[in-house]
Design a protein around this nucleic acid. Structure first.
Length: 778
RNA sequence: GCUCGGGUGGUGGAAUGGUAUACACGAAGGACUUAAAAUCCUUUGGCCGCAAGGCCUUGCGAGUUCAAGUCUCGCCCCGAGCACCA
């Protein structure tokens, strides 16, 4: 009897799968297609910890099962390798980030391979590959062509530590999402993508998606649609009007003052008339110095300044009311100006109390909408600040001739990222690329018409490459198009997308935006990229904290595989609990999974031709086949495994098992623990595998999924529970289909039931067929 | 403050309104062993009881129902998202 030795068999089968190209997807064919995708990783220097592969194992289980169920499965993997960590590493070591990325990718791949994941590596992509980012740049040019990419000088989020501009999505509670530094607001020339053009559609189409409600809700909040009205407040002795946005036009009568954001453009226009200009300017400077956190902290007391010398007029009642500036009004939302209604708004009330402004009780009147307001819709979503002052990103493919923007032509793509001597960001708002004058300054045209131009030196943000990568897997080597349209139509959209919930308002927003744009310009045929989404619950450290080097609670999967085997790691991660739930790593619990696999291993020596399975066993087997199939579909991996454990415990009790029964069990086990299943399958020398040996089809990985026999699931005996007033008092075994009166008679005849019925009046009997008989007594 | 999840043994967790605590870990006892590990067997929600048995138990409090972890209402706690967004 051979002992179970995962180290030996796992390597062996991984090599066989690769050699026989078992997991390569076809771009056409009669089989139905199934496109299942993981969020591709950033290949950090630290390598994977046990949390990363959890999602990959889940998609692996699903894709293996789908393949066995007759689907043409596309399950690809790649690397999202632009970004700060590689660049910071480059700065520290003065090496090109490309070198570190190559090394890290190799390490990641190795780590993924030893887990036995069924990726189609022939489609591997890397966002830093010029052949890939050529198309990222191409999409940018298309956005520019359609007016959806523009330059702006608006104040943007600036991270003083990373020395780059950030998008709103990259800022968490006023801090840089990457390094935690408090961001500053700075006006800088930036490239911005008009994601707001798609705000309404992105909001509406959420309803089409089979996504977790929490993620959809996050996106709804982020897009932040609010319907309201714009009202013009005239000013005394001025032609300009103050445009105000409100969702409560019914409170217009109660508006007792108007507040402008300190940055409001009207303020400087009003300068000649403002009597206290110095005071106003002083307040504006103070606000400028504040960080976003200081400014938006609700706890803090509201501040403001009254503009003297100008008054506004409430259009509803003609009253003259004062104009204030205050930083609780944000310039970049609505119109940057509000009508303050202290009687119906807490913030206005607090402000009014502090500065002794009138508070007016009123009757609400929605008809004022029609009379004084114009219906408008506002979104919280801001356009996507798309440029970074860093080295390690896709160059933005445009030229400046001093006045105009000249896009590169498609034939000049990819615009490759040049090598530089220093990767350090300049901090002045220019990327290190600005220092390479040879690259930056180029001559366009010939002879007299030749013109010197400057290249754009900003690069794209990390999110650029990941906003369309799922399309590239459909056709990864195409030099002529982003994706061949036939292949795009065949693969359609992603059927199942699995990844972390932290991408709800970043990657998943950006990718939907780009996809919708690509749909509008005819590159893709679907409105949404990811039909179904499932988020992975984090694996926490054993201490309950997030796994991180900082806490010293990181578990490396390589070590787990070394000790227990990849199959044990896989089954354990799927068995831990509900897939979308965060669960701490429990080193002690792994042993149970290893014991389970040991038990499975030993069962192969019980196979016998004379084995005769009992009806009860057959029922359990077919019920398990049914349950495992359903549970994989619904991603209830933990219960699928527990049902296989129950079956295994039952087989353990049998003296002999038939090859057929055991084979069916191995098949449903194989998506979870493919190596041990493959090894035992081969050991059993199944006739099919003998016949097809050498064709690559001898593998359990390409076998067909067992079908459960409906008739075998139907049991002929059942356990009837006897309840008195809803409490279980007895139970008995009965034939399926036992009638109410039979069950009642049987129950009444039982002494432990009689005890409870004695001297009581039976008011009612409830009979649930094949399950329960409940006596309601007084 | 608004929105979305969640709260079940010592631990991870299971349960179409129908036997709460499946499966696994841990623990206790036993078999095997010179011994240990591994393996196997038994027990394992709490309280009362020698036992038979009884009572209680899914964050707290009500309600609906023959029957509630599951449905309804109110509250408490934990996690996530959004938030001076007018």
């Amino acid at each position: 009897m051979q002992p179970y030795d995962p180290a030996k068999i796992e390597k062996k089968w991984q090599a066989v799968w690769e050699k026989k190209k078992v997991f390569q997807a076809q771009d056409s064919g009669k089989k139905p297609k199934y496109y299942i995708l993981d969020m591709f990783p950033y290949p950090s220097g630290e390598g994977l910890h046990v949390g990363h592969p959890k999602g990959y194992i889940a998609t692996d289980v699903m894709s293996r099962a789908k393949r066995m169920q007759g689907f043409n499965v596309l399950h690809p993997m790649g690397f999202d390798a632009f970004g700060l960590p590689a660049e910071n590493y480059a700065i520290a070591t003065k090496t090109n980030p490309d070198v570190a990325v190559k090394k890290n990718v190799a390490r990641f791949k190795k780590q993924l391979e030893i887990i036995g994941l069924d990726y189609d590596w022939s489609r591997e992509i890397n966002t830093t590959d010029p052949k890939y980012y050529k198309w990222t740049q191409w999409i940018f040019l298309k956005l520019l062509e359609k007016g959806l990419a523009y330059e702006s000088n608006e104040p943007v989020n600036w991270c003083p530590k990373d020395k780059t501009v950030l998008s709103n999505e990259d800022v968490e509670n006023g801090k840089c999402e990457r390094c935690g530094t408090v961001v500053e607001k700075k006006p800088m020339r930036q490239w911005v993508l008009k994601i707001t053009a798609y705000a309404d559609q992105m909001l509406k189409d959420l309803d089409l998606l089979d996504w977790p409600e929490a993620i959809k809700e996050s996106q709804r909040n982020w897009i932040g649609k609010s319907e309201g009205a714009e009202v013009d407040f005239k000013m005394k002795n001025r032609t300009e009007v103050i445009k105000v946005f409100t969702t409560r036009i019914d409170t217009l009568m109660g508006a007792t003052y108007v507040v402008l954001a300190p940055e409001h453009e009207l303020i400087s226009k009003l300068k000649p008339q403002i009597e206290n200009w110095e005071e106003i300017e002083k307040y504006r400077q103070e606000v400028k110095k504040k960080t976003e956190i200081e400014r938006t902290n609700e706890e803090k007391e509201k501040t403001g300044a009254k503009i003297k010398g100008v008054k506004a007029v409430n259009p509803a009642n003609g009253e003259e009311i004062p104009i204030w500036i205050a930083d609780y009004v944000l310039n970049n939302y609505g119109t940057g100006a509000i009508m303050a209604v202290p009687s119906h708004d807490e913030r206005d009330l607090a402000f009014a109390k502090k500065y002794n402004l009138p508070i007016k009780e009123i009757t609400l009147d929605w008809s004022l909408l029609e009379k004084f307001g114009k219906k408008v819709v506002k979104f919280k979503l801001r356009d996507w600040v798309f440029s970074r002052q860093r080295y390690w990103g896709e160059p933005i493919p445009v030229l400046h001739d001093g006045e105009n923007i000249v896009p590169l032509s498609e034939k000049d793509l990819p615009l490759e990222l040049p090598k530089v001597k220093s990767y350090e960001p300049s901090g002045t708002g220019e990327s290190p690329l600005a220092n390479i004058s040879k690259w930056v300054n180029i001559k366009i045209g010939k002879g007299k018409n030749a013109k010197m131009m400057r290249r754009e030196t900003n690069t794209m943000p990390q999110w650029a490459g990941s906003s369309w990568y799922y399309l590239r897997y459909m056709d990864p080597k195409n030099n002529k198009a982003l994706v061949d349209s036939k292949k795009e139509k065949y693969w359609n959209s992603v059927d199942m997308y699995v990844g972390g919930a932290e991408h709800a308002t970043r990657h998943l927003i950006y990718a939907r935006f780009w996809h919708k744009f690509l749909f509008d310009i005819g590159v893709v045929s679907t409105k949404e990229p990811f039909k179904k989404l499932q988020s992975v619950g984090l694996i926490m450290g054993a201490d309950g904290r997030k796994m991180s080097k900082r806490f010293g609670n990181v578990i490396n999967p390589d070590n787990i595989i070394k000790t227990f085997g990849a199959d044990t790691l896989r089954v354990y991660e799927m068995f831990m609990g509900p897939f979308d739930q965060a669960i701490p790593w429990g080193e002690d619990n792994i042993i149970g999974v290893r014991r389970f696999l040991e038990r499975v291993w030993k069962l192969q020596f019980k196979i016998s031709k004379t084995a005769k399975a009992s009806e009860k066993f057959e029922t359990l087997l077919h019920k398990t086949i049914k349950k495992v199939g359903e549970d994989i579909e619904s991603m209830s991996f933990n219960t699928a495994i527990s049902s296989m454990m129950i079956l295994t415990n039952e087989m353990d009790k049998q003296k002999e098992i038939s090859k057929e029964d055991f084979g069916a069990f191995l098949k449903i086990l194989s998506p979870f623990a493919p190596h041990i299943a493959e090894e035992i399958w081969a050991n059993l020398g199944n006739p099919t595998s003998q016949k097809l040996r050498g064709t690559g089809k001898a593998l359990i990985a390409t076998e067909s999924w067992p079908e459960f026999d409906k008739n075998k699931i139907i049991e002929d005996k059942t356990n009837i529970v006897v309840q008195i007033n809803g409490k279980v008092r007895a139970q008995f075994e009965a034939e399926i289909g036992i009638s109410e009166s039979e069950a009642k008679n049987k129950a009444i005849s039982m002494p432990e039931v009689q005890k409870w019925l004695e001297g009581k009046e039976v008011k009612k009997v409830i009979f649930v067929p094949n399950k329960i008989i409940n006596f309601v007594v007084l």
